[in-house]
């Protein structure tokens, strides 16, 4: 595991949509499992991708084993709400009587952020589960978190509830969750970006917003799709055919942009791992392996 994450029990992978969060979450999970840590990778109310990336059937809302030491789950609001309610009410019959009541369901929908709270609650609950011999059920949990804007809302929820909801079970749980998320000894955030203007802007903003609004510290930045310099001006003499000149200039423009983006990300003062742009036919297990290897090399 990358040094910056080696001691974290909770790893949160986030960034703009389409930057390769799921692939990175899968690679980190695979690496963690191979190091012998019992690892759970969670997707949050999303179209499930991680099982598919690892070449396994869909796992759905039940924690399911994918590989040795590796489990996955896709946390969805309805099931999470039920589990959360059952945990507090203890009895299925009361759950049905109360939570399947039309009026109650209506109110639950509009209790601010209750949905996010139960999703996050379910994930963090797995962090304190123990096996009969007293060891952790999961040594490490990796969250494939929602994209930027939604991530800030999502991880702010415990704090929002602590601030707004008067004392009660919900508020007690929220305090516990908030403390876990902001504890840098437990939690490390991985910001994923792409070498383009907008994704980099978002990464910089996300880093600032997480630190100021959520008090979560980023541990590592991963720049996916990095294009390393290949051509020098000497490769493009005047005599070169126009089409090839364009090919080289196009590549140079892209690699310059990659370098500029890397430089901007480095201003955060965090380690930035670059993952080269891949030209593999499908973004499946092979891609995950390549990313994992790259992370391993970045130790």
């Amino acid at each position: 595991m990358v040094e910056e994450l080696a001691d974290k029990r909770l790893v949160v992978v986030t960034g703009k949509g389409g930057v390769g969060k799921s692939t990175l979450a899968a690679a980190l999970a695979m690496q963690s499992a191979r190091e012998g840590l019992r690892t759970l990778v969670c997707e949050v109310n999303a179209k499930e991708r991680i099982s598919q990336l690892l070449g396994r059937p869909e796992v759905g809302p039940e924690v399911t084993a994918l590989d040795e030491n590796l489990w996955a789950v896709n946390v969805r609001p309805q099931e999470a709400m039920r589990e959360y309610a059952l945990m507090m009410l203890k009895f299925e019959s009361i759950y049905s009587a109360v939570f399947e009541n039309r009026v109650v369901r209506y109110f639950l929908r509009f209790i601010p952020s209750l949905q996010e709270l139960v999703l996050l609650g379910k994930i963090l609950f797995h962090l304190r589960e123990k096996r009969p011999d007293g060891r952790w059920r999961f040594d490490r949990i990796i969250i494939d978190a929602p994209a930027t804007g939604h991530a800030i809302t999502f991880f702010s929820v415990p704090q929002v509830i602590v601030d707004t909801v008067p004392p009660g079970a919900m508020s007690t749980d929220a305090t516990w969750m908030r403390d876990l998320l902001v504890d840098p000894k437990t939690t490390g955030v991985v910001l994923v970006s792409l070498p383009e203007e907008l994704p980099v802007n978002e990464t910089l903003e996300l880093h600032a917003a997480l630190a100021s609004r959520v008090k979560m510290q980023s541990a590592l930045v991963v720049l996916n799709g990095f294009i390393a310099p290949r051509f020098t001006p000497a490769d493009v003499p005047e005599t070169l055919p126009e089409g090839l000149k364009q090919t080289a200039r196009h590549h140079m423009a892209r690699s310059d942009l990659s370098a500029a983006c890397l430089e901007r990300l480095q201003t955060l003062g965090l380690k930035v791992v670059t993952v080269p742009r891949m030209f593999t036919p499908e973004f499946g297990r092979q891609a995950v392996e390549q990313v994992a290897a790259r992370l391993g090399a970045a130790k």
């Binding site: 507090m88 909801v165 009660g168």
Partner: peptide, 20 residues
């Protein structure tokens, strides 16, 4: 008064009475 206050009480276990 809803549901003879039983339902409301149960929701309040989650949210606190003031929230409601």
């Amino acid at each position: 008064n809803l549901g003879g206050s039983y339902v409301a009480k149960t929701i309040a276990r989650f949210t606190g009475t003031e929230t409601l």
